[in-house]
């Protein structure tokens, strides 16, 4: 019995610790206690390896029918709106966030100010980690400690990690435009999917779109690495007026011309479509809409859209489509369907 209890406690240690380290309630003291526990007994280390392996392997299940079915059940239970509302109420998440909570006092003012984001200071290295998000249709500008600016487009989540030696942004979803202050000793890194874009002083846009990311440079030059930290990974130098795409697997495309008009336009709360197929225009415009516009008749998808539209003025956009393409928009509740009249 005694040995069973011991086993129980010991084993529970691994799952308990692993879960706790992801809880958002961990500070340096807990970090130390964890490290001590791990070193105490090789059985602890082994149990922790099991848990870590279980965690990593569970990620391999993405895309499998059974798991996807479970996730769909989840979406039905918690609609996307609920998800985002919750996310805004409590912005801290992810591996860095776990060290945040006990330093939260310092961040309270920031939370109140920004509605979102908790500033975390590690006394040892003075690393600060802050999350910023925008809702669907929302845009906002954030000014970083070095006066670099980040403009967040719709439905975007970034995590900012700053220290004396590091300027790092993780673009977890959406799109952002970066205006970077020069600091040769502290490169400015934007991590998106598995790739990283490095700049010194420049202005560039990164957009995550499903399994691929696009980097467009408006001023200066950046380096894009398809796979962060892989010496053999594909890289590209991208200079003003140019753009590249890379995939989650790290494949970097050839350099192409950047669509600077599009980027300047969203900066001014506008979208610009020049001879864009309706399907592509809708895919872009829907990023700003909670109730998406869809094509009801496949023959409409290839028609072209031209014009400059205000982001947020959905009515005007739909009206322009109705007029310009001779279609009729019908609201079904969950979407707006474009049909032939």
């Amino acid at each position: 019995m005694k040995s069973f209890l011991r086993w129980r406690i010991r084993e529970q240690g691994a799952w308990g610790w692993f879960a706790r380290l992801r809880s958002g309630r961990v500070d340096e003291r807990v970090d130390e206690a964890w490290s001590k526990w791990l070193a105490e007994d090789v059985a602890h280390a082994r149990a922790y390896e099991n848990t870590e392996l279980a965690w990593e392997l569970s990620a391999e299940l993405k895309g499998r029918p059974k798991l996807e079915a479970l996730l769909r059940d989840l979406e039905a239970q918690f609609p996307a709106d609920t998800r985002r509302a919750a996310a805004q109420a409590s912005p801290v998440r992810g591996p860095l966030a776990v060290f945040g909570q006990s330093w939260r006092l310092a961040g309270l003012a920031a939370v109140a100010l920004l509605c979102v984001g908790v500033v975390t200071f590690f006394m040892l290295n003075r690393v600060s980690v802050t999350d910023y998000t925008t809702e669907i249709g929302e845009q906002r500008t954030i000014t970083l400690p070095d006066n670099s600016q980040v403009l967040l487009n719709t439905a975007t989540h970034v995590r900012v990690t700053y220290s004396r030696s590091l300027r790092r942004i993780d673009l977890l979803s959406g799109e952002a435009l970066f205006q970077v202050q020069k600091d040769a000793r502290r490169p400015f890194e934007v991590h998106a999917l598995n790739g990283v874009t490095t700049a010194v002083g420049t202005e560039f846009d990164v957009q995550v779109n499903g399994a691929s990311a696009a980097v467009s440079v408006l001023v200066g030059t950046v380096k894009v690495e398809g796979t962060a930290g892989d010496p053999k990974g594909q890289t590209a130098q991208v200079t003003l007026g140019q753009a590249v795409d890379y995939t989650a697997a790290g494949a970097v495309s050839a350099v192409r011309a950047a669509d600077a008009n599009r980027i300047r336009a969203w900066q001014a709360h506008r979208v610009v479509y020049t001879d864009v197929a309706l399907a592509a225009a809708l895919q872009d415009y829907n990023r700003y809409l909670r109730v998406p516009i869809v094509v009801g008749d496949p023959s409409l998808a290839a028609r072209h859209v031209n014009g400059v539209f205000r982001i947020g003025d959905q009515t005007a956009f739909i009206h322009a489509l109705e007029e310009g393409l001779h279609v009729k928009a019908v609201a079904t509740g969950s979407e707006i369907v474009l049909q032939k009249p």
């Binding site: 958002g24 569970s58 989840l74 998800r83 996310a87 998440r93 992810g94």
Partner: peptide
């Protein structure tokens, strides 16, 4: 694991 929500969320 799959929706990246934090514990408080």
């Amino acid at each position: 694991r799959f929706r990246d929500l934090s514990y408080p969320e």
